[in-house]
Design a protein around this nucleic acid. Structure first.
Lengths: 347, 347
DNA sequence: GCGACGGATTCCAACGTTGTAACCAGTGGG
DNA sequence: CCCACTGGTTACAACGTTGGAATCCGTCGC
């Protein structure tokens, strides 16, 4: 296969290997004459630098990993797309990994599986604890997404996140603003993930602000943020006796909301007539469904951009800069599931 | 950072570097005594082999790429998930690339960008032509997904695909079996991709078998297989005068069907009452939507498994084996959008 | 007791690249 | 006329690993 090396190019151009190396890395100290001669040889032979050898010599690979729980979750797929784009602009290639929410796997990635293959990792953790991470973050360039893995002022890694508490509060306040009084939450997480805790807190704050009391029976515990869990949780809520049934549900993710919508459909309850629905993620699936789902939209492009820049800075830095926390914007998009207009989509 | 090398382990265990190398690769000719001693040293120091160095020496990286048009398309995200799983089982890591349907990018990947980084590529091509690929396939291990890039008997690369013609025929026949007579197709592709052509052919065959005539006005041209294109195409179809409006639509992908469902919702047409709907891909989004969408489900796990095995065989082979074509199973799942039961989902 | 044998281990060279130091012209100042 | 200097280039060594040849050592057959 394409086994053309610096040596071949050097012979062709009649210069030393090192000169060719200097040219392709465009180092200074190369005369214009030899530069063009070498470049021509490179063209003619179709030379491509060997990443492994380069990596071996320099210690840099130009490879960063994005580790997400599950690629089949639209939110992460879209995020991956943005991260790839951002990274490409900075000359980095992205290796996408799935943790499946496994703590060991998350930790393994945080420590840089083959630190010798990757320059850094962007990790979207689900279950790994701050304490476990703290042991690790100074050893390998790491940026965390969507979790707040620090206590008080002690930041143990770079973070990029949205204000989850505010996001949940806004969505819930919107539901309360419709006059709904029995508002349920789907997304309280058995494992007690940070995301889940924060969204619950925002939910409770909004209830309190609206003068409603928090009823734990309307906040069932679930396992994962997927459609099936949303479906089952909503089924259970829909079967509550008439007076206790929720008239609105804030789902901690769009997938949960999709499952909930399906359960309401099965139970012949109308949306938003009987039950209003809101989710989080701003996924296309929520936008295009019928009814379309109200959702808190995190600015995924901003998240990706901040995360990649942050990571690349750390990779390139001589000595590690202090850890930073970046908060990306989010906004609420009101759609049919909570009384928004059935406006024609403008895709 | 984790800069522990074979040398360190060797010193610790009191053996030569090569012996350690032999142990970690579990080569034969290592006594049980030294093996355990070395293993303990490996444990204690936390040694991890350096992939770049290994790659440089052996010419193998254990990295294969999966190149898909767009990760945000659920079908490809799910496929990526399966490919990762299969590859991991065989000891390979998957680098996921997005081509965005760009012909140059597809070709670049097919030639193995940095053949020196990747052992092989699984490519899901959209626009690259068989002729262009033929020039390339003998230089680099490549498996193609979902396209038939060969003429007659001349296979120019390994392929894994489903029988697209049959898939489209079955879905359309199902719609015709409901008694629908004005059946439209959404998915005829301006660029004339192979997938689109095959599904159109199956569509036409089924019409013919049902004694219906093909009306090109009911097969509008679109650009991509996404929700937006489905939405716009269906809007146009819905605005046809009463007698000409379709009473069923076969969409060439689930995303198109999702868009079409949205357009029907906007136009206050019922599904399946006014218009029955079917798609292809077997995505979760189709299963969980309301109404749930009838879909032809390709066996993604089988596709992934066949593709990875095929590629790995080629990577490992001394001299390239003959090209193979694998056909993965598919089946039709009838759901609400074409009169299926509103059965409770069993997730 | 000696040579042959075979298993276990070591030595050496290489993979393609880049950093460092050295080299080789010319140039200008003393 | 020599020296220091500069820009341009080259020689050498190393990065961590592995394939192959070479070596060592204990055992067996004679």
């Amino acid at each position: 296969m394409a086994a053309v090396t610096l040596k071949d190019v050097a012979e062709r151009a009649g210069v030393s290997i090192k000169t060719v190396s200097n040219v392709v890395r465009d180092a200074p100290r190369v005369s214009e004459a030899t530069r063009t001669r070498v470049m021509r040889a490179v063209q003619e032979l179709g030379y491509r630098p060997n990443p492994s050898a380069r990596r071996l010599r320099t210690g840099r690979s130009g490879l960063i990993a994005l580790a997400v729980p599950d690629l089949a979750t639209p939110y992460f797929a879209e995020l991956a797309h943005h991260v790839r784009t951002e990274a490409a602009a900075l000359g980095f290639t992205v290796l996408i990994e799935e943790t499946l929410g496994d703590t060991k796997e998350e930790l393994r990635l945080a420590t840089g599986v083959g630190a010798s293959l990757l320059d850094g990792v962007i990790l979207s953790p689900l279950h790994v604890s701050p304490d476990e991470l703290a042991l690790v973050t100074d050893q390998f360039p790491l940026v965390l997404l969507g979790e707040r893995s620090y206590e008080g002022d002690r930041v143990v890694a770079d973070h990029v996140l949205i204000d989850n508490v505010a996001a949940a509060r806004e969505a819930t306040a919107h539901l309360a603003g419709l006059g709904r009084t029995r508002i349920a939450a789907i997304g309280v997480d058995k494992a007690g993930s940070a995301t889940s805790r924060q969204r619950l807190e925002g939910f409770q704050q909004a209830l309190h602000d609206a003068g409603l009391t928090y009823d734990p029976r309307l906040a069932p515990q679930i396992k994962d943020f997927d459609r099936g869990n949303g479906l089952r949780a909503m089924r259970a809520l829909a079967q509550l006796p008439k007076g206790q049934r929720p008239d609105a549900v804030f789902c901690f993710s769009d997938l949960l909301a999709v499952g909930a919508r399906r359960a309401l459909h099965e139970a012949d309850l109308t949306i938003p007539g009987d039950v209003a629905l809101a989710g989080v993620d701003g996924s296309e699936e929520a936008r295009y469904g019928t009814p379309s789902l109200t959702s808190v939209v995190p600015d995924k492009a901003a998240i990706a951009s901040l995360a990649v820049k942050c990571l690349v800075d750390r990779v390139r830095a001589e000595d590690p800069p202090p850890f930073e926390v970046h908060v990306a914007p989010h906004w609420l998009e009101v759609r049919e599931s909570s009384g928004g207009e059935r406006e024609p989509l403008e895709p």
